[in-house]
Simulated scan of single mutants.
Amino acid sequence: MPTHGQNALEPAEANALATRFKALADPNRLRILSIVSSSAEAETCVCDLTEPLDLGQPTVSHHLKILVDAGLLNREKRGVWAYYSLAPNALDSLAATLTQKA
């Protein structure tokens, strides 16, 4: 009977990784991550994302929710606006998980 390597993904780990990869599998969400990560303030208001993405606010909010739920972005509500920043080490930990399991 074949044995599985010690570094093989557990089902819960595989599900968490799949959620993150699904979140990254959309060009608009990749652009959102790029805009947020390249911002001088290390955060971006939802109000500043609709124009560069050429998308309506409800669509942008949908993409942002997916990125927050996947643990890639943090959301902070200030008054009527929400500000988004990269979750600390989210992308680094994703890459590290893949290289450890490979």
Rank of each mutant, 00 (worst) to 15 (best):
T19P: 02
A96I: 03
Y83C: 01
L73A: 08
V36Q: 06
N89E: 07
G79N: 12
C47H: 13
A87M: 06
N74R: 14
I35A: 02
L98A: 11
A40Q: 12
E43V: 01
E43R: 15
E51S: 12
L64M: 06
I66D: 13
I66F: 02
K22G: 07
T99C: 03
L73F: 09
Y84A: 05
P27E: 07
L91R: 04
R75H: 04
P52Q: 10
L33T: 07
T99Q: 11
E13Y: 01
D92N: 07
F21N: 04
V46L: 01
T3M: 03
W81T: 09
A14F: 12
A90V: 04
T59W: 01
M1G: 15
S39P: 04
L33N: 07
P11W: 08
N89L: 07
L73Y: 12
L55S: 09
C47N: 11
L86V: 05
M1S: 15
N7L: 06
Y83G: 05
D92V: 00
A25I: 00
A18W: 09
L55W: 05
L67N: 09
L67R: 07
T50V: 11
M1D: 12
V68C: 13
H62P: 00
I66A: 13
L17A: 06
W81G: 03
A23Y: 11
D26K: 11
E51A: 15
T97E: 15
D26M: 04
E43Y: 12
K22C: 12
P27S: 08
L49G: 10
